[in-house]
Nucleic acid binder design. Structure first.
Lengths: 222, 222
DNA sequence: CTATACTGTTACCTTTAAGTTACCATTACT
DNA sequence: AGTAATGGTAACTTAAAGGTAACAGTATAG
C-alpha cells in the first residue's frame, strides 16, 4: 500500500510519515503543489492525504485536477473547521476530512478504510516468478504456495519495502527482534531458512547479501 | 436509498430526519437499542447512523452484533471526542465517526459517501464448494445446508470480510466475545467446532491458521 | 418438563518455530 | 600464505502454539 502525502508543515509530515511507515504503509511525500504534481506522474496511489493550505496554492485545485486522471481517494487535512471549508472539500472530491489537530492513529485508520476499497492489488508485488501479497500474507514462487514463519514474514516485508536496495543487518535485527538480545547465529539461521523457503531446485536466487552492507531482495547481483 | 437512524435525542433526531428526507433519503428511526433491534429485522439499509450513548446501552455492542449479518456501513455519532472512543468505534466496525456538535450538511455528505461505496458490495460469496449469504444467513457446502452456532456465524462473517487475508487471534476474540474475559481454550474450541462444521469427510480445508498471525478463510493455494 | 444444542472447561496430543551448536566456505588483510 | 572475520548450512532440541475429544453447566425449544 502506497499513499501520497502533501503537507507543508515539515514536523507534522515527518511524524505522520514515521507513523504510517510503522504501519507498513509506504509514503511518497511532497511539501507543495508543484512538488506533488511532479512526484505523482505515472504513479499509482491507494490514497492521498492533501493539506488544503499549501505555500503555492490550495489543495482543492489539485484535487479537482486529479479527479479526472487519478481515482485515488482523497483525505483532506486542514486547520480550518468551518462548514463551508468542509463542503468545499467534499465538493472537490474529498472522501474524508480531518481538522488539525488530530491523532495520528485516527489518520491511519481513516486512510486504511479509504484505501481498502480502492487498493485491491496494491499490496501485491512481483519479482521474477515470486509473487507476494503482504496484506493477505500469501507468497508464491512459480505457482506453488510457500509457507513462511512469523519471523520470515517480517523479514520479507522489510526487504520488500526497501527492494531493490539492501537492508543492513542491524536494521533487520532491530525489526525482527525488537528490544531483544540477539546473537549473530539467530540472524544467520533466519536468512538460511528464508532462502531455502524461497528457492527450490535451480530457481534464480533472489536474496543477495552484499558484504558489509546487508541483504537485498532483487533479481540480479550487480 | 434508506438508512437507519438510532439516536435518543429527539430534537436532534427530528432535525436530522427532516434534513435527510429533504435530500431524498428515507429514514427508519429508533431511539434505543431495543427499538433498533426490533425495527431492523429483515430490513436492508444502505447505511446506519448510530449514536454511541443510548439509554439502554452503548451503540458499540449493537454494531458488533450486526456485523454478522448486516453489511451496512455504520457511521457513529457521539459527544465524546476522545481518541480511545474513536478507536473503539472503528474497532467495532465503524466506517466513519462524527462528534457532536456537527453540521447536518456534513452528516448528509458522509452518509451519501458511505452508501455509495456500500452499494457496490456483495453479500453473497463462494469459495470452493462453500457458498455463504451473509444477509440471509445461509451457508452451504456442496449443496448441503450447514447450521452454525451464533459464535460461529460471527467468526465466519469476520473471516469472510477479510478473506483471503488472515484475521488475528486478538481480533477474533474481540469480535466474538466483546468486553469479556476470554481464555485461549474458548478460542481454540470455537475454531475446531467451526472447522468440523465446514468440512465433512475429505473436503478441502478452508480454514487455515498461519502461526502467530491468525486464521484465514481461503483455498490452500490462494 | 424433557431433550437438544451451545459453550466453557479440562486434559492430552501434535506440530513447529526458533535458538543453539558445530562445521564449512569465502573473502580480506597483514 | 596464513589467519581473522564474515557469511552459509545442517542437525539437534525444546518451549510454545495449535488441535482434538470428551464432559458439564446452562440455556433454549418444543
Amino acid at each position: 500500500m502506497i499513499i501520497l502525502l502533501v503537507e507543508d508543515d515539515a514536523i507534522l509530515a515527518q511524524q505522520a510519515i514515521t507513523f504510517l511507515e510503522n504501519e507498513g504503509i509506504e509514503v511518497d511525500y511532497a511539501r507543495s503543489l508543484a512538488q506533488a504534481k511532479g512526484i505523482c506522474v505515472g504513479q499509482h496511489y491507494d490514497a492521498i492525504i492533501l493539506d488544503i493550505n499549501l505555500p503555492d496554492g490550495t489543495g482543492l485545485s489539485l484535487a479537482q485536477q486529479w479527479r479526472d486522471t487519478n481515482t485515488a481517494p482523497i483525505l483532506f487535512l486542514t486547520a480550518r473547521s468551518a462548514l463551508e471549508d468542509k463542503l468545499a472539500a467534499f465538493a472537490a472530491g474529498a472522501l474524508d476530512y480531518l481538522t488539525k489537530p488530530f491523532a495520528l492513529e485516527e489518520l491511519v485508520i481513516r486512510i486504511k478504510l479509504l484505501a481498502k476499497k480502492h487498493s485491491c492489488e496494491a499490496t501485491h508485488f512481483n519479482l521474477d516468478t515470486l509473487s507476494i501479497d503482504l496484506e493477505a500474507k500469501i507468497i508464491k514462487r512459480a505457482q506453488r504456495t510457500i509457507i513462511l514463519s512469523p519471523q520470515q514474514w517480517t523479514l520479507v516485508a522489510l526487504l520488500l519495502r526497501h527492494s531493490p536496495a539492501p537492508v543492513s543487518k542491524e536494521m533487520i535485527i532491530n525489526t525482527v527482534w525488537p528490544d531483544q538480545d540477539v546473537n549473530n547465529n539467530m540472524y544467520k539461521s533466519l536468512l538460511t531458512r528464508l532462502r531455502t523457503n524461497l528457492t527450490k531446485d535451480d530457481e534464480v536466487e533472489l536474496l543477495h547479501t552484499l558484504k558489509k552492507q546487508g541483504v537485498a531482495l532483487r533479481l540480479a547481483n550487480d
